[in-house]
């Protein structure tokens, strides 16, 4: 399938935005998933609700709230710009953050379920061998639920690939800079005679998502074989 330079750019930006979105969200997602799965603390319900909020509110609303916070006049955006010279609005980095926020609950939920499925007695045994909570998370809990971590990351990656509403709010639709595949499909369908281009991009979207899922299934199967009793 031959792609035009603009389509290649959309593909590259989509991959870059989605990968960065997953990479940025992974560690916080693991931390919050562990907290929700293994610790009872006051305000747990509030944290659970806040984490899941992006699942149920319209992505455009998420994007708008991000724009308020991260815009050049926003409370966080102005500081980032003043101190580090980082500008997130109308930039692929802003798109990555927007995609990351929208995909975050999927990652947390998958990893939380995975951690809950790990028999806590293995973690207890590891603690009695002289290891702290963080070491036990790293050496026992996460390896034993790596399938869930992979599944969560793949789900988040696929969700970030498809992100539209929040991305367009904060990063706009700038060709070669912030135009991801969904934005390129939207633009193509808005343009006269853009159907063919839209179909090619739809094909790429499906191939990317299916490829990611297949890769995660493969890794899951290997992990299951390894842990089979």
């Amino acid at each position: 399938m031959l792609l035009s330079p603009a389509e290649w750019q959309a593909l590259r930006i989509s991959l870059q935005v989605s990968l960065v979105a997953v990479a940025l969200g992974l560690l916080p997602a693991i931390a919050i998933a562990w907290l929700l799965a293994r610790r009872a603390f006051p305000g747990r319900f509030l944290v659970q609700t806040l984490v899941n909020l992006p699942l149920v509110i319209p992505p455009v609303v998420t994007g708008y709230l991000l724009l308020i916070a991260l815009g050049t006049h926003g409370w966080l955006g102005s500081r980032l710009h003043a101190w580090l010279g980082i500008r997130l609005v109308f930039d692929w980095k802003g798109a990555a953050i927007a995609s990351g926020v929208v995909a975050f609950p999927l990652m947390v939920r998958a990893i939380q379920v995975g951690i809950e499925s790990v028999d806590p007695r293995f973690e207890q045994a590891h603690r009695t061998l002289g290891h702290g909570a963080l070491s036990t998370l790293r050496r026992v809990t996460l390896p034993l639920c790596r399938h869930a971590v992979i599944a969560g990351a793949v789900l988040a990656f696929a969700r970030a690939l498809g992100e539209f509403g929040a991305t367009i709010m904060i990063a706009g639709n700038i060709p070669g800079q912030t135009r991801t595949i969904p934005l390129a499909i939207y633009t193509a369908l808005e343009s006269p005679g853009g159907d063919q281009q839209a179909w090619r991009l739809v094909g790429i979207s499906i191939i990317l998502a299916a490829g990611a899922l297949a890769a995660s299934e493969l890794m899951l199967a290997r992990a299951r074989r390894r842990l089979a009793p």
Binding site: Q124, A125, T128
Partner: peptide, 29 residues
């Protein structure tokens, strides 16, 4: 915390870490 108590525990169900070989289970101590 359990790791600060200087106690060795052999549990009724052995609780070996299933993702580690025996040698690595022993090295974990």
């Amino acid at each position: 915390a359990p790791n600060q108590r200087a106690i060795g525990v052999a549990f009724q169900e052995p609780r070996l870490l299933p993702h580690l070989r025996v040698r690595d289970n022993l090295r974990a101590a």
